[in-house]
Deep mutational scan, measured.
Amino acid sequence: MPVRRGHVAPQNTFLDTIIRKFEGQSRKFIIANARVENCAVIYCNDGFCELCGYSRAEVMQRPCTCDFLHGPRTQRRAAAQIAQALLGAEERKVEIAFYRKDGSCFLCLVDVVPVKNEDGAVIMFILNFEVVMEKDMVGSPAHDTNHRGPPTSWLAPGRAKTFRLKLPALLALTARESSVRSGGAGGAGAPGAVVVDVDLTPAAPSSESLALDEVTAMDNHVAGLGPAEERRALVGPGSPPRSAPGQLPSPRAHSLNPDASGSSCSLARTRSRESCASVRRASSADDIEAMRAGVLPPPPRHASTGAMHPLRSGLLNSTSDSDLVRYRTISKIPQITLNFVDLKGDPFLASPTSDREIIAPKIKERTHNVTEKVTQVLSLGADVLPEYKLQAPRIHRWTILHYSPFKAVWDWLILLLVIYTAVFTPYSAAFLLKETEEGPPATECGYACQPLAVVDLIVDIMFIVDILINFRTTYVNANEEVVSHPGRIAVHYFKGWFLIDMVAAIPFDLLI
């Protein structure tokens, strides 16, 4: 008679799926529990143990900040960024110097990925580790590398530091407007667009060049630039800015003055950032001319202004700041037409079709709590990747769950009947059967004279019903998954307890 339990259901295979997918890609990662103190490590794979030199037993239950890997060259700011990422709910990448158990130093890129439950609360953290440099290539500990984003994938490793954006290309926007319009339909740009040429040739750093990471940081200074100062900065030398009595002219307006920039070969870094931020506020060169004239017309309804409409929906549905990093990277690809469009465009503009998908598509409701890094690593669709929660398995109709209350009560009843059979069957065979043979035949009273025979008949009927119930009862397979398919249940029961239950259900007393 089957006594099969499996009270692990309803099970959740999400954690096993993450481990299996990460292991298949030869990654070095740990999984931490966000619900406990210090976000203790609950799993670390073999790749991480080989990377740091510690065994799994030495890593388990330690804080996922990996303070046991810190050393003299470990930056405090990087460690603080990892700790801050564990307090938030967004994906974050941090470069930090770690030390192995043998004392060797290596520069590592740590990717902190939160995993949320159905309520939107962070319950786990996945920390992925990628070695960037070994100890002989690690720089000085005073050099802070965590304020910069990861290198873009479309640049060669040897040319990542030679990417320079020439400031004269930004200063000569109005001069290039006529050349853009003359391109017409034969050019790649839309009317009114501004073409910015980027020099990728390796050259020595000069005062006129600005690194790509500095251009990325310009967006942080746009908020500090007032509207009046932006307007004066875009007017140009024809209309000098008016300053109040006793007030000095704005240095932001002076930063885009061609006369002032041409007199000296070098520009201050602050002026460069502010000038680029001011130019980015204009949607095209037409807006710059309109600002000089004193009238700013409404933005025209053409394809170039609607190019950012799908980007707005993608940004609203993005799951991490990696989408913004990807957008900034692609927006700086050289030799393309940049349409400086305000994100607050007309909502009635139709979304044009684009061959290049900048932001990841909208994630469906079932995966809105899973970050983009987890979705990318697992390579699963929205119909396959579940949320991290207890999910009731989908069972067929008329199927009994093996952990249901009805099955528990039924098993206790069958257990009592088995005990009765084990006690009274030998007793009936030894004593009652002998008395029946010696006594007179009682054929007239039937079952009324033999109450134990009636009980034995009921017990046999219950055993037959138990066999039928076992054909529709779920079970737990070797992978700790609840199986509810009727065919698989029948095959599993035939290979197991079916023969024993059938022999126990045969009414031998009635056959004798």
Rank of each mutant, 00 (worst) to 15 (best):
S55V: 01
Q11M: 15
T174D: 06
V113K: 09
L343W: 12
S304N: 07
N146T: 12
S250T: 07
N339H: 01
A244P: 11
L267R: 06
I42E: 01
V384C: 02
H70D: 01
K362V: 12
Y43I: 01
P141I: 11
R73Y: 15
F22Q: 06
L200Q: 15
L311T: 14
C108I: 01
G120T: 06
V341I: 06
S354T: 15
S313W: 01
P227D: 15
H221T: 10
R326Q: 09
A203D: 05
R326F: 03
L210S: 10
L69I: 01
G53Y: 01
C276Y: 03
A203Q: 06
T329S: 13
I31R: 01
A34L: 01
T337V: 07
A223N: 13
T305E: 14
Q81E: 13
S209G: 13
F48N: 01
A80N: 04
A169M: 05
D144E: 11
D355M: 14
F98C: 05
D46N: 15
F106H: 01
A303R: 06
G226E: 06
P10L: 07
K101H: 03
D46Q: 09
A211Q: 06
A293G: 10
M124Q: 03
R27T: 13
T145A: 14
L296A: 11
V325W: 10
L109V: 08
G158Y: 15
F340W: 15
V94C: 14
C108G: 05
A350P: 11
G183S: 05
R148C: 15
S379V: 03
L380D: 03
A188F: 05
V115T: 05
S284E: 15
A57V: 15
R62S: 12
S239Y: 07
P240D: 13
Q376S: 09
T319N: 09
V215G: 12
A253H: 14
N339P: 14
G183L: 09
V295D: 12
H221A: 07
I30Y: 01
R56S: 03
K364G: 14
K166Y: 01
G246K: 04
C276P: 11
H309Y: 14
P241Q: 12
P347T: 14
R92Y: 05
F106Q: 01
T216K: 07
D323E: 14
Q247H: 06
S153M: 04
L385F: 14
L171V: 10
A83Y: 06
R292V: 07
K116R: 13
E208T: 10
K362T: 12
V370F: 15
L155Q: 05
A285Y: 13
S239Q: 14
D119M: 15
Q81L: 09
S179I: 12
M124R: 03
D287H: 04
F68S: 01
L171Q: 15
P310H: 15
S354C: 15
T162L: 15
A228N: 15
S182H: 12
S322Y: 08
I18M: 12
L378F: 03
Q335F: 04
K364R: 14
T270Q: 07
I42M: 07
R366Y: 08
I336C: 15
H143V: 11
R271F: 15
G88F: 03
A290S: 05
P237D: 05
N45L: 01
H302T: 06
T201F: 05
C39I: 12
R62Q: 13
C52L: 06
I333V: 14
